[in-house]
Design a protein around this nucleic acid. Sequence first.
DNA 1: TCGTTTACCGTTAGCGTTAACGGAATAGGG
DNA 2: CCCTATTCCGTTAACGCTAACGGTAAACGA
Lengths: 352, 352
Amino acid sequence: MASHHPTEQRLTIREIAEAAGVSAMTVSRVLNKRPDVAPATRQKIEQLVAESGFVRSRAARAMRKGRHGLIDLVVLSLDSPYILEIIRGVEEALEPTGLRLVVSATHGEDQHERQWLAKISDGWTDGAILVLAQGQSDRVQSLRRRRTPFVVVDHEGELGPQVPSVGATNWAGARSATEYLLALGHRRIAFIGGSPTLGCAQERASGYREALKAEGIDVDPDLVRPGTFLHESGYEQTMALLDLPDPPTAIFAGNDTMAFGCYSALRARGVRVPDAISVVGFDDVLVAPLVIPPLTTVRQPLADMGRFAVSMLLRQIDGSPLDALRVELATSLVVRESCAAPGTSGSLQGQT
Amino acid sequence: MASHHPTEQRLTIREIAEAAGVSAMTVSRVLNKRPDVAPATRQKIEQLVAESGFVRSRAARAMRKGRHGLIDLVVLSLDSPYILEIIRGVEEALEPTGLRLVVSATHGEDQHERQWLAKISDGWTDGAILVLAQGQSDRVQSLRRRRTPFVVVDHEGELGPQVPSVGATNWAGARSATEYLLALGHRRIAFIGGSPTLGCAQERASGYREALKAEGIDVDPDLVRPGTFLHESGYEQTMALLDLPDPPTAIFAGNDTMAFGCYSALRARGVRVPDAISVVGFDDVLVAPLVIPPLTTVRQPLADMGRFAVSMLLRQIDGSPLDALRVELATSLVVRESCAAPGTSGSLQGQT
DNA sequence: TCGTTTACCGTTAGCGTTAACGGAATAGGG
DNA sequence: CCCTATTCCGTTAACGCTAACGGTAAACGA
């Protein structure tokens, strides 16, 4: 049952013009809020537009102007609360500009058929903000070849400093979190890393090592665990850490989600936080202060990163030069209640 | 510094045609995979397109065809993890269709100047999915007047059954959660409601009352608390409940976020969950299983609701009739570890 | 008074694509 | 050999909007 609604023709600018007794161009001028229209005429047209519920065609406008007023936000997936923060920042920054936000997810990259690139590059959007995993450098290159303005968020990686990107000071954040644990008196501090292919994960691991080194502590390979940034990963690695002959007194998780995994594992083993083991996360997602105990974590200003990405993108779109291609926003340690000095409760056995 | 890039002309279908020695129409036919093109010609054009990286202008195409391939998703705010679930469902359902998702937030409705409607109206999209609060009926009406297809998610309210909407069985969910607590032996069950203007909040409150009544228990007005769906609200109301001369043995929070507020308050007072007090939430957001103890809650299939909204919208767009204007997806109680039989730990005093 | 500026508005001409139609060339049937 | 059917491709004309330009009339200055 196709939709043949010959009567349902949408209003055009010309019909409004006719009703107002002016030319289409004048209506266009009013709609574009241009100054060279007599107040009386303007008001009449505005009223007519309001009454009729007329909306101009985005397509025609886009064709004429060469711009569509749309910005692409491409993310890996929409599963993590982490991404919501970024979306929020982007949306807020875009709001006053009148540009609209188009969200799409790549759903992992095994889907080679409908590449995300095709979506962006079919000339619909004016620019793109990419929140991606690794291994996309070829696509990013071809994006550049198409001269589509874009900004990468939270990932430099192998793309190099050539591409505009916004990140956070992962290294410094990880270092200060580790230093905090050291200052509390911890000496056996475990680290659960994120996907090793991600630049941010590498930086965090490096910051952790650096802090230990600065304190003259050798990094115990047993205490440095691989991870995936996912909850199970935090759970499993914590279990493994607890099974060590000499378990850690503190765990620094590569992100909050894994820190929650630590919580679960520790609870399953009856180990209390922070009495028996301290836990630190990374990201400071919305729920970090809501879990029990409230999670001490490294705050990554995700929303600000989103906002910043927008401003960089807008600069590119209107041809202004960028101050810097790579921008890193400051992280900060948010101390809550998941850490304590070690040894406050003799052993690792707690109560159910 | 405006962007005058005269050299940066995008390729047009005509240029491809010229290079191939055919007319633009033939190229268009190839691009649209129409059968009436000689194989040799087709192949030649396809090769040329691939080599040049040509992408046809969606704007021109949209103008010609009358549709742009954009769907609006309008939400109240992007602050809650709740909304991410819906976005996820919508995105997934939209992906295979080739339609693109435009996200915008209204940021509360005190902003009367830049109404969300204006956003949508400035160049129409093919349809809209609205996740709104109350008091929007007038705008919804004007949407209908514009004949823009739309679906409302999770809110019927004063809009009446006339508008297509997707919701969840809030009443049944609240009732079964309350019944579960009753079955555990609880008799003093508190309820912290959501914004009373929201239909779903009313339904949940009603389900709660109904379950108590069915068990022959009078609703104690002290135990029914107003709330706002926000974390602080859960915290404050729990505090008030604990201060009651005869405090409840279980708390049913109107949503998960408030349930987390309960957790915080109970922890601050040293009351242990579920030993001293049981807690039940509503929504089953992503973090519900991750908090400690894992939250028993009523699962609302938010992603499915998003998916369903998309399918209803697509039906409207291509003119198929809707099976039903109002669809309610089933909620289900997810039992985790935040509930226990009352009285397992004599009094309300726990340990730090 | 006349030229000149200013304010306002209309005309023309496309933007790149495709529906509808028409025409040419080939194939097949008598 | 002609006639029709089929296959392939080109021409024309929009879709709705707006840049560029041109024109008119009022206001202004000398």
